[in-house]
């Protein structure tokens, strides 16, 4: 779904402090290109390569320049700017909106907004927020926890015990990010996992029902979002023929175009796998630091096997 002007007024764009001056009924206008543009050149009358598909930002420079023009030319420049079909126009520094601007905006059903922010700050923040808002997003079925800074998505068939295992991890000091439904966004820093607003910080545990985790276990037991580092796939113990027994070739899965390591853990009824998951996460961190236990042991074995002309040392 393409972004629309309304998204710039939502909670994720609150820091822009935008107020609508006109065109409140046209906030569903799409933003075809999630980027910003300062239309200085277009306002001088040069329209080639005008980035009309982006959010337009005007500051003191544009407005002061227009004041040097006569009223007819000024009105004409605004008319042509809006006629290009821009998504919306934002004025920085709470600058006054000249009537000819509003007239041109209304004629093209284009929203005009204002903010107290200075132009450079507004342009930077708006560009970043548009990037965030346009980031590819995917909702997956799985529970996400933060284990000492390592973001883990637990996935597996319904009833395998994702939430119960997560609860065990939280009791051992992890934080809950999302229970059962995890929203993933692809950002420049990687995949960011978060929960869906309506059920945030709640868990459902079979037999008990819905729990509010921060009330039960304290504020440190939850996190709003976390970068995803690994996926833990839980499979029924009887169907786990392909479980990795050595760990030489860590499996990778691609989510939204990002490769994420994945391990598969067999779960038998009643078996506590929280320690296994903790060990897997710490082992992942160890690998990041350059220590690969499986590789080092294998190296050691190969060395001892090849020493002395192929005879095994015992």
């Amino acid at each position: 779904m393409p972004l629309c002007v309304q998204d710039l007024l939502g909670p994720r764009a609150a820091e822009l402090k935008l107020r609508v001056i006109c065109g409140a009924e046209h906030l569903n206008r799409p933003i075809p290109e999630p980027a910003v543009n300062r239309p200085g050149l277009a306002l001088t009358g040069f329209y080639r390569y005008f980035a009309h598909r982006r959010v337009q930002i005007c500051g003191l420079a544009e407005m002061t320049y227009l004041k040097t023009l006569d009223a007819t030319t000024r009105a004409e420049r605004w008319r042509r700017l809006f006629a290009a079909g821009i998504p919306c126009l934002i004025l920085a520094r709470n600058l006054r909106t000249p009537p000819e601007l509003l007239e041109a905006a209304r004629a093209r059903r284009t929203p005009v907004m204002r903010t107290e922010l200075h132009t450079s700050r507004l342009a930077q923040s708006a560009a970043r927020i548009l990037d965030d808002l346009a980031a590819p997003c995917l909702r997956v079925q799985g529970t996400t926890v933060d284990l000492q800074g390592i973001g883990i998505l637990l996935e597996g068939p319904p009833g395998i015990g994702k939430s119960e295992i997560a609860l065990g991890l939280i009791a051992r000091g992890c934080s809950l990010v999302a229970d059962d439904v995890t929203e993933l966004r692809r950002m420049s820093s990687g995949l960011i996992a978060t929960s869906v607003e309506v059920t945030r910080y709640h868990m459902e545990i079979r037999g008990i029902g819905i729990l509010h985790i921060p009330s039960l276990l304290g504020v440190s037991s939850v996190r709003r979002e976390k970068r995803l580092d690994m996926v833990v796939r839980l499979v029924p113990a009887d169907k786990s023929a392909e479980v990795d027994r050595i760990g030489l070739d860590p499996e990778m899965v691609e989510i939204l175009g990002v490769a994420v390591p994945r391990i598969t853990i067999p779960v038998a009824p009643g078996r506590d796998v929280t320690l296994v998951i903790q060990a897997a996460a710490l082992n992942y961190r160890l690998r990041q630091l350059g220590h690969d236990a499986a590789k080092e042991l294998d190296q050691h074995i190969i060395e001892s096997l090849t020493r002395g002309g192929g005879r095994v040392n015992d």
């Binding site: 909702r139 079925q141 319904p158 439904v181 869906v196 309506v198 059920t199 709640h202 868990m203 459902e204």
Partner: peptide, 13 residues
Amino acid sequence: QIVSAKSIMGVLT
């Protein structure tokens, strides 16, 4: 949005 109909949290979201 698609969720499992066997998940309370999924259905609520």
